[in-house]
Design a protein around this nucleic acid. Structure first.
Lengths: 222, 222
DNA sequence: AAAAAAAATTAAAATATTTTAAGAAATCAG
DNA sequence: CTGATTTCTTAAAATATTTTAATTTTTTTT
């Protein structure tokens, strides 16, 4: 009979952010180490359970400009980024690409609605640089939750963070000017400005590349 | 020993959306019926567990213009709207109110970050009309999760939906014009246009009331 | 390393949105 | 019900942002 973690316990783990050191997942399984450490940063997960994760995920490397997912297809996997950088975008009625998210190391990426409901995806996911991901299919995803139940708390936290982060992102998008949104991006994810082409950043901020250029010029001369 | 629902099971419940009829929660406890039905629309919850919910929530009625929460205070409760309409807004650096969300019947509302971390809230929550809510404090919230574990699945779904819904809302805000966002609101939440003053709607759409007026005029004459 | 392609910058003209101001319509308080 | 207040609309002027187009810089390909 397993003991269920109370909400309180999981929150403690969440905020204290205890980290366990792994010794048995090494060498060829290096990419799993990244995922396991990320999970253990958020919940308690025995090294034994951790070592079982290897059975659920496969690894994949994609080159710059290659796609992990194209809108219209059914998203068969959820992806964890071990190394690299991806962009998520939609194509609107006018045929224009709109970048809505950038994923880097330790981010989960996917079209979750498509993955769950087996509906055609709305998003494109493309590599901005050579990227290594771990992926899990739907069958193993379900198995994961029933066979390693602690994991449910980890994803609970992931979804909760996603919901909270996006809530404040919406607030910002409404109340900030494009210049303020750019300043905020510089503060929160400075590495993106090095890794992501400016035209994608502009689209993410909801402005044209030309206008982003003007903003950058204005900032640098003040 | 309780049986844990697998991810698969809870998803089935989610999408099939089975509904159970309650007969024992009636009369003076009518407001709980709304919550219980909402929960049972998403997960399986025995009528016995359902009847215990009464112990966790209190009810409160607030009048038009009254506040449930003000930024700066610590949010001690999460709220479920039984009847009425609330707005969530932030005040930006220029002192301007920015509405980011409207809650109506069956919506959960609160500053969840503040509630969890006991930090000062960033949001104001104010009634747009006379509103009846059920509220739960942090201690009972934790107790709820450990004593009625099925509920965790319900909130898992709530967070997941919030994360997904907000994701697509961000995508829209970037790729739609104000006019398209207004059209989308008409489609998705037509009742809000009757219940919420236009100046709040304008703020929610990220435009001035004057410009919303122009959009409405343009739409009505085409 | 050179040629070709893609991305970033600059500036001017065009368009979208806000601001200001005033009047009309709707709602509120006594 | 009536006056007072708030909300909504309209229009003109001001500002922000996009579009277009040309040039420079950077990246990719050969």
């Amino acid at each position: 009979m397993r003991k269920s973690l109370s909400s309180f316990q999981f929150l403690e783990t969440f905020f204290i952010g205890s980290r366990f050191v792994l010794s048995d997942i090494e060498g060829e399984h290096g990419m799993y180490k990244t995922l396991i450490e990320h999970i253990q940063n958020h919940i308690k997960l025995s090294d034994q359970s951790a070592s079982r994760l290897v059975d659920y995920f496969e690894s994949k490397e994609i080159n710059k400009k290659e796609y992990l997912l194209k809108a219209g297809a059914i998203s068969r996997f959820e992806y964890f980024i071990v190394r690299g950088c991806l962009r998520v975008f939609v194509i609107d009625a006018k045929g224009v690409e709109n970048n809505i998210r950038f994923g880097t190391e330790n981010w989960w990426i996917g079209d979750f609605t498509s993955f769950l409901k087996k509906e055609p995806a709305s998003y494109f996911i493309q590599a901005i640089e050579k990227t290594e991901v771990l992926l899990i299919n739907r069958i193993k995803w379900d198995r994961l939750f029933s066979e390693i139940p602690e994991i449910a708390f980890y994803f609970h936290i992931m979804f909760q963070n996603a919901a909270l982060g996006q809530q404040s992102k919406i607030a910002q998008h409404i109340s900030y000017t494009p210049e303020q949104r750019y300043q905020d991006l510089i503060e929160k994810r400075p590495e993106l400005l090095q890794r992501v082409p400016q035209k994608y950043i502009a689209s993410y901020l909801g402005i044209t590349p030309e206008f982003l250029s003007m903003i950058r010029k204005k900032i640098s001369t003040s």
